[in-house]
Design a protein around this nucleic acid. Sequence first.
DNA 1: GAGTTTGAAACT
DNA 2: CAGTTTCAAACTC
Length: 716
Amino acid sequence: MDVVSPELNSLLPDEIMDTEAIEDVPHSHSGTTATQSEPSGDTSVPMETDTPLATENLTLSSEATEHTQAVSISTDSITSSPPLTLNVTTSGLQKLTAPFTISPANHQIILNKVASSQATEAAKSSGTPPQVIKQEGQKLLVTAIGKSGQPIVLQLPHTGSKPGVSQTSGDAKSPAPQFKVVAIGGRSELKPLMGSAGNQVTTLQAQQLKTVQIAKKTPVSSAAPIKFIITKTVNSKGLSPQASVPPVIAGRVLTQSSPVMPQRTISLSETHNTSIQSIPGKKIAISPLKTPSKVTSVAVGGVGSSQFKTIIPLPQPNVQQIQVPGSRFHYVRLVTATTASSTGQPSGPSTSSIQTAKPMVVSTGAVRMSVPIVPAQTIKQVAPKPLTSAAQVVTTTQTQQRLIMPATPLPQIQPNFTNLPPGTVLAPAPGGGNVGYAVVPAQYVTQLQQSPFVTLASSSGFPAATGIQTQARLPLNGLSTSETTSRPRKPCNCTKSQCLKLYCDCFANGEFCNNCNCNNCFNNLEHETERLKAIKTCLDRNPEAFKPKIGKGKEGESDRRHSKGCNCKRSGCLKNYCECYEAKIMCSSICKCIGCKNFEESPERKTLMHLADAAEVRVQQQTAAKTKLSSQISDLLMRTTPVISSGGGRLPYTFVTKEVLEATCECLLEQAKKAEQTHQPQAEAERMILEEFGHCLMRIISSAGKAKADSASVSC
DNA sequence: GAGTTTGAAACT
DNA sequence: CAGTTTCAAACTC
């Protein structure tokens, strides 16, 4: 089975998902130690900045009797460590070439790198934020590399001597950077595994070789990204609850949890295992490029641009969200729950992550991915996202994960995913893992996060039979009223396009139709296949179809401009027909419009803009004034009614007729205009309005009193 | 609200 | 790539 189905691959750009070459990964043989060396140039994931000084290639492959698990870890370290290649082949027990230490008892493989514990400790003592991963002194923990279905945890803790790492016999001794590989059932420092420690796991029915390539970027000062390539076999189909445990990359921590199974966790964390923290700004990017085979890429975090991608547990067990802060696109992975399990979901990382929203977890199932990690300094420069933001929480209860969306600024990757509009569903492989991915608008992600179902699904076992469509609908229909009403985009009214063409604004903007007036709408998760095809068609026609039309201008130009320019002929580019005018930008040289009046010095444009601004201001003022006046009158009536009523006179609201209200409003508006014309500050304007309101009230009261007196005199 | 206008998107 | 058609939004009445 592939990470994604071939059919899907055919529909998607090659850069996005490609698993064709998965089979190309050499399988290690049982009981043998194979060396898989990948030159740094080949394995390196395109890094946007740093150039690796040295490369360490580490390949761990564990093979059961009939299947193979291979983990290739390639690190480019600033320490310029000599190239290191290691293959670990396990058949029940792990065999590993030095300098790695294997602890068969707990199925742990400890890879000791020339860790500079001192440097790490120094960094910690110097107040280095926990989210900053230090280049040195890191350990990579690979947990549960053993028989099928076992969790794999890759961790990069701060120091080499952390609690819970005691089983890592070669911890401090090895001269090489320390990596810890925890085998089947082993508990990772960062993530408690679901399965029992001694669990030997069920045998995979079929396994699929997948590679996870993780590239860690070194600090800005150092140009030595560390890359990890993890290749392992996983069952291709019929994922049993025990067997299918998707690796999760959480913020800095890659964890994977299964409702039933021991977690296959890939964790990258500089922090202590007991304090899993998200690392804002830290990027874990997976690049399909530059790898011999196509790779499903995952990227988390961004450099400077705060390009995060976060996988958030969706309300449904088979829906995962990938949020990209700074982008309006949110990605959701849909996983058909084929592995129902009555056993409860581990209450550990997943649940806590959801609740605390701190860990940023990127789940990666049996995927090949490269994860460049943002250098610590770069991370520091990036304004940390609030850890409390649930959007940065990445957790999964999925039994298998296939794709982690890239948040990398790498041009080779980013465009591919940014081209995919929200709502894009990456269809699951036929008969395969039943895992799909959907890109959904941000509001859906928010909704999902707010949905109580999230906690429900993430914290406990869930019905596995829940369908994708049901899952997809949940966020869609679950939108709260406020969210729905606050939706900036107008509902579309498409009738013929099925909302699957760029005619549809929703589709063109990468949004699902929601509360639209469209007919026969296919722009939803229920029609993910059609939507995917439509997206593919659009991208074939125009690779930048889903990119924002309004972007920056030429070099040095800060003004926005239309990427393609308009072609207006009759509107003079002064009506909303014109995309430039609609975006409130000037037409540029790339526009092909005729009779354009949408330029800086255009008197028509100035007049129009002035009128529009004036009208807008007027509307705002009127709205505010009416609201305020209405509230004040209401309050006044509430206070005065008992008094006047007790006096036996006419009720006050009988005097506050519609005409009186309108007159009062006009008076107040006039006062507001007067204040505006005289350029009074807001406080003064408010004072003038309130003063006028007081006058109005006095007149109303006076009139009421006079009427009462008249009435009394008449009665007399 | 119906009909018209408009220009982007889609199609040929 | 150019011309035409389709489409849905913007606009007018």
